[in-house]
Amino acid sequence: AQASVVANQLIPINTRLTLVMMRSEVVTPVGIPAEDIPALVSMQVNRAVPLGTTLMPDMVKGYA
Results as ranks from 00 to 15, higher is better:
A34T: 08
V30N: 09
P38R: 09
A34R: 05
A64W: 03
R47P: 02
G31D: 00
L10N: 15
G31A: 03
Y63H: 06
D36T: 14
G31I: 02
A48N: 13
R23K: 15
A7E: 00
D36E: 15
Q2Y: 09
V30I: 11
G62H: 07
A48F: 11
L10I: 15
K61E: 14
T15S: 11
P12A: 11
E35N: 10
Q9S: 14
L51F: 13
T15M: 12
M59T: 05
L55T: 01
L55I: 14
R47T: 14
A34E: 10
R23F: 05
R23G: 09
V41M: 08
P33K: 11
Y63G: 05
R16Q: 15
V30P: 12
P50Q: 11
V27I: 08
G31K: 00
M21Y: 08
I13K: 15
S4Q: 02
M21Q: 04
L19F: 06
I11D: 01
L10P: 15
S42A: 11
S42D: 09
Q44A: 15
V20E: 13
Y63C: 04
Q9T: 13
T15I: 11
M59L: 05
P57E: 05
I13F: 08
D36A: 14
S42M: 09
S4R: 01
V45C: 03
V6R: 03
V60R: 01
N46C: 04
V45W: 00
T28M: 10
L55C: 02
P33I: 13
K61H: 13
V41H: 05
M22S: 01
G31Y: 02
M43D: 05
E35Q: 12
K61Y: 07
V60A: 01
N46Y: 09
E25A: 09
L19E: 07
Q44Y: 13
T15Y: 10
L40C: 03
G62N: 08
P38H: 15
N8K: 08
D58V: 07
R16E: 08
S24P: 13
P38I: 14
Q44C: 04
Q2F: 08
V45S: 05
G52R: 04
I32Q: 00
A39D: 05
A3T: 08
E35Y: 10
N14E: 12
T28E: 14
N46L: 12
I32D: 01
A64R: 15
I32L: 05
R23I: 13
I11G: 00
Q9C: 04
V60P: 00
E35R: 06
I32W: 03
S42R: 07
T54L: 05
L10G: 10
M59A: 09
A64K: 15
A7M: 04
G31C: 03
V49R: 03
L51V: 11
L51W: 15
P50D: 12
T53S: 13
V30F: 10
R47F: 07
Y63I: 04
K61P: 14
L40V: 07
D36G: 12
V5R: 01
V45A: 06
G52N: 11
